[in-house]
């Protein structure tokens, strides 16, 4: 049974920042653009959480927009 394609994600390593995640997940993309993309795809972390942007080890961090 082949699984259908779903949205790709990574989980943060210990102490990893959004900049570090952006760099490893979106290599070659300008830093600020990569960070903005990660944020816009992960508002469950960057808007809904208290404090906003607090990364925890169990987080799902999407590295692409919704697939539609």
């Amino acid at each position: 049974m082949t699984l259908s394609k779903q949205r790709s994600f990574v989980t943060p390593g210990p102490g990893e920042t959004v900049e570090q995640i952006a760099a490893r997940a979106l290599p070659g993309r300008p830093t600020q653009k990569a960070v903005d993309d990660i944020k816009s795809w992960n508002l469950h972390i960057f808007a809904m959480r208290r404090p906003p942007g607090l990364l925890t080890g169990s987080d799902v961090v999407f590295v692409e927009p919704p697939l539609g």
Partner: peptide, 13 residues
């Protein structure tokens, strides 16, 4: 409002 302890676990844990 802070995430409960389980949420700070890496998948390895």
């Amino acid at each position: 409002g802070r995430p409960v302890p389980s949420r700070f676990a890496q998948f390895d844990e």
